[in-house]
């Protein structure tokens, strides 16, 4: 459903962030992007919905060439791509409900959205999503009153309120503690699978990547240097992506965690304490 070919991004100042990336995400596939800070993960994800303008290359989403779209068509195409951000990117002074409903802005006119007159089915879906992420009673709470984990749940609800086909996720857990990080990851993956969405997630925590996704893509200095299943992510692969280090713990836990992935998904809220930080 998503085909990227020859993607290059050169920032006006500084080095080349992406040097020719080819990547395909199939419908219903969960792909994790891993790599060091500055490898270009965030740029790659942002090039897809053109929050960052790509310099060269083609990006096709369900047959639409995204890089060729004009301003209006781009807004239209963005409705199909939900995005979840590292620092949640909520509007602090708006309520939880307003933040979730802002996922519908691509569909609702300026005046109606300014007056907060969203169609009833949008509001109903927002309420269902808030129920699903466990924030039903916080509907009218201002977003800045919530904790980090709760804020990211609002971010998730906003992205899904869009009813996207593709979910772009940019470091969703790096501002969270390890336990909350796992709960958030589990929630995202469950929601994506329930709805049969595709997901491209950029994540620096190798353990989380191997635990929750089916395909790992390693980015190094703007180029893809590894592509494979979590099991294939061995010490050699990790060295290719991150450079020379002692990768014993990561590669071992990668194999162990993929093995019990199936069990992990069932428990939603209760993460057993002994698996809170495995492999460390």
């Amino acid at each position: 459903m998503l085909e990227i070919s020859g993607l290059v991004k050169r920032y006006p100042s500084g080095p080349q962030a992406l040097r020719g990336v080819d990547l395909t995400v199939k419908t219903g596939e969960l792909v994790a992007l891993i790599g060091t800070s500055g490898a270009g993960k965030s740029t790659l994800v942002r090039c897809i919905n053109r929050l960052v303008e790509p310099t060269e290359g083609k990006i096709r989403l369900d047959g639409t060439e995204l890089t060729a779209l004009d301003h209006r068509e781009l807004r239209h195409a963005r409705r199909n791509m939900g995005m979840i951000f590292q620092e949640y990117a909520l509007v602090d002074r708006l309520s939880v409900m307003e933040n979730v409903l802002s996922g519908r802005l691509g569909y609702v006119g300026v005046w109606k959205s300014a007056m907060r007159r969203f169609p009833p089915e949008d509001v109903r879906r927002a309420l269902e999503l808030l129920e699903r992420v466990g924030l039903r009673e916080y509907v009218d709470t201002r977003a800045d009153q919530l904790s980090g984990g709760q804020r990211q749940r609002v971010g998730i609800a906003r992205a899904l309120e869009q009813q996207p086909a593709l979910l772009l996720v940019d470091e969703p857990t790096s501002s969270l503690d390890p336990k909350t990080a796992r709960q958030i990851m589990r929630l995202i993956v469950e929601l994506v699978k329930e709805r049969g969405l595709s997901m491209l997630i950029n994540i620096h925590d190798v353990n989380l990547a191997t635990m929750f996704t089916e395909r790992i893509v390693g980015l190094q200095d703007g180029k893809i240097v590894f592509e494979g299943t979590p099991e294939e992510l061995n010490e050699e692969a990790l060295t290719k992506i991150y450079g020379e280090e002692d990768w014993h713990a990561e590669s071992r836990s990668a194999q162990a965690e993929t093995a019990d992935n199936g069990n992990g998904e069932k428990s939603d809220e209760h993460v057993p304490l002994n698996t809170a930080e495995p492999g460390r």
């Binding site: 929050l51 807004r75 409705r79 995005m83 990117a89 802002s102 519908r104 802005l105």
Partner: peptide
Amino acid sequence: ESMEAVRATGGSWLQVVIY
């Protein structure tokens, strides 16, 4: 980032301003 988020939903310039 909040502006990016609203833009990413397909919101227009005016909606970015309003939201």
